[in-house]
Write a protein that binds this DNA or RNA. Structure first.
Lengths: 122, 122
DNA sequence: ATATCATTCAACTGATCGGATGAATGAAGA
DNA sequence: TCTTCATTCATCCGATCAGTTGAATGATAT
């Protein structure tokens, strides 16, 4: 009944760190080298390389080696699955609220049209 | 430029664990007691209480105490923010793809103004 | 007051995280 | 060959995570 928890685990974990989200945003705009990705951050190059590994483990990013440089590119698929989970959850909730709203409206409608007497109209 | 990273961090972290996602799905359907939430899991009650704390820290869940029972209820707001981040990211990506597609179409049109009509059949 | 119940708090463990540092790899250029 | 460059590997650190067990809390019923 569970829908492949592992993938979601890795994706959400990868998205849980601001540095990784920033890296992802950057690599999404264009395929980048590791050094290039590390440049805006105050942490070591190795730390960035590790963050990229976490993104890679979740499948959000792919590495390609050319010449002496490693190119990192974006892969949107795991993001789709994460979005699907959240949307499924949210839509269930809003549906629940809509149902409640409809119920309240129905009660309201039943109460207001001068049917305020004791015996309920049937 | 950054939109309150901390909230997203906590939300994504909370969603990164399958037990917590399951708890959230359950508590979303109805407000539940801790013991009730713990029942389907093979871990200790304390472990579940901790998971609930993680959800609570992210604001995904609220605790209310009545009588000797603690009732846990769902709060959708942090989920909205997580969904917004992912959607923003995905929409950027698809827009990028659309632009690329348009570019390719334009090139195609420029390269073959009229000779295209029976040239390729694939 | 005491017992009971639902839950949390406190302390501990092993695993993983986020980070630093220094050595190793692998490929190109001299 | 030897050097240089981009990056990873290996190791260590302190912090947090996920889990356990046992004691403490807080409210009610006896």
């Amino acid at each position: 009944m569970n829908e492949e928890t592992g993938i979601l685990d890795l994706t959400m974990t990868a998205l849980a760190h601001p540095t990784r989200r920033a890296i992802l945003q950057r690599v999404m705009r264009r395929e980048s080298r590791v050094t290039e990705l590390a440049e805006p951050f105050a942490i070591s190059l190795n730390a960035v390389s590790k963050h990229i590994s976490v993104l890679e483990r979740a499948g959000l990013v792919r590495r390609r080696r050319a010449w002496r440089e490693h190119w990192v590119s974006f892969n949107p698929v795991p993001l789709d699955e994460a979005a699907a989970w959240i949307e499924k959850t949210r839509s269930f909730w809003t549906a629940r609220l809509d149902a409640l709203d409809a119920l309240l409206k129905a009660e309201d409608a039943a109460a207001s049209p001068q049917s305020q007497r004791k015996g309920r109209r049937t």
